[in-house]
Amino acid sequence: MATCNLQLPEGIIAHDFDDAVQLAEALAAHVAERLRQAIASQGRATLVVSGGRSPVAFFERLANQPLDWAQVVVTLADERWVPSEHPDSNAALVKRHLLQGPAAAARFVDLYNPAASLEEAAEQTDRVLAELPPIDVLVLGMGDDGHTASLFPASPNLREALNLGDARRCLPMLAPSAPHQRLTMTRSLLASANHTIVSIAGPSKLDTLRTALKGDDVAALPIRAFLNPTLEIYWCP
């Protein structure tokens, strides 16, 4: 069994897996159970996921979980500012790999809108997210640079996006090393989730996470904003 050997603060739990298939299966089962609990207690559940290539196997396995999908709201922690027809659209990824079969009954809240500018798009999305039910489960990824959602180090709006006291739910974000402008949920909205999971794979991301755990400069490594008690970490080599 692979092990991440992290020195974790009290309350944070790490789950280690030998490969991405094992991780995806375990994560899907765990998330589905959390969603079932939310539906049982309040009649509905809200799931926020991350995009990119890494979560595809998780999405496909989650779609096959027995769940009252008609009572589930699904949305994204962040989105590239591209229409759903674009190959880099996170919304298209979710619809293609998660919202299939019975899971197609879930309600999807799209972050993208074709406004005249990125700033206007973020304002419109902010209003949409004002109507989002409380987040029951949040599944985040992380980049080698310590970004999560689209909270990128050195992005012009990062300070505002990380401010827990800021009322904004969505902000425009620029990824210094990525080709597309972004829309991201802010830290204040993401931190409101009842249950947060960070799912990562590979030794380089593990090294980044290990570095993040040793410091407290959130702007340098934004993943630090979510390394709080009750967090669960899913990792495989």
Rank of each mutant, 00 (worst) to 15 (best):
L35D: 08
A225N: 06
R210Y: 08
K205M: 12
L35E: 12
P222N: 11
R36K: 14
A161S: 08
G141M: 08
V56F: 01
H86S: 04
P87M: 09
R96L: 13
D126N: 15
V198R: 10
I39E: 03
E120A: 14
A212M: 11
T46L: 06
I200G: 05
M1P: 12
A121R: 10
A167Y: 00
L23R: 07
P102W: 10
L67D: 05
L118M: 08
A57D: 13
G11Y: 04
A105V: 07
T125E: 04
C236Y: 13
L6N: 10
V48D: 03
E33A: 10
D166G: 10
I39S: 00
P179H: 07
K95R: 15
L132H: 12
A130P: 06
R53A: 12
V49C: 13
F152K: 09
T186M: 12
A191N: 14
L158C: 01
L158M: 02
R210M: 11
S41C: 13
T196I: 14
A38D: 01
L227H: 02
G146T: 04
A105M: 10
Q22R: 13
H86F: 00
V72E: 00
W81A: 10
A104T: 13
F58A: 12
F17S: 07
D88H: 05
R169A: 07
G143N: 06
S89Q: 02
A40R: 13
R182G: 10
D166L: 09
R210T: 14
P222G: 11
A161P: 02
P222L: 04
R224H: 06
G11T: 10
E120T: 09
D216C: 07
Q100A: 06
Q7D: 14
T230M: 13
A220C: 08
L76S: 02
D207E: 15
L118P: 01
R80F: 00
L6G: 10
S89D: 04
R159P: 00
D110W: 00
A122L: 05
D126T: 04
N228Q: 15
L138A: 12
A116Q: 12
Q124H: 09
N228V: 14
Q42K: 15
R53W: 00
L171E: 05
V73Y: 03
P55H: 01
I223L: 07
A175K: 05
P203A: 15
A220S: 14
L67A: 02
F226P: 03
R169N: 14
L221W: 01
E25L: 14
M173H: 01
G215I: 03
A115T: 10
L162F: 01
G141R: 09
P114M: 04
A191C: 12
R159S: 13
I39Q: 06
F17K: 11
G43W: 09
L129S: 12
P55Q: 08
N90K: 05
D19P: 08
E10R: 14
G101N: 11
M185L: 15
N5F: 06
Q71I: 04
Q100K: 15
P179Y: 11
L164W: 03
L47G: 05
N163T: 08
D217H: 11
A122K: 03
F226H: 10
L23K: 03
S150T: 03
V94I: 13
L129C: 14
G51E: 00
G143P: 03
S192A: 15
L171P: 04
T184E: 03
D19A: 07
E79G: 03
P102C: 08
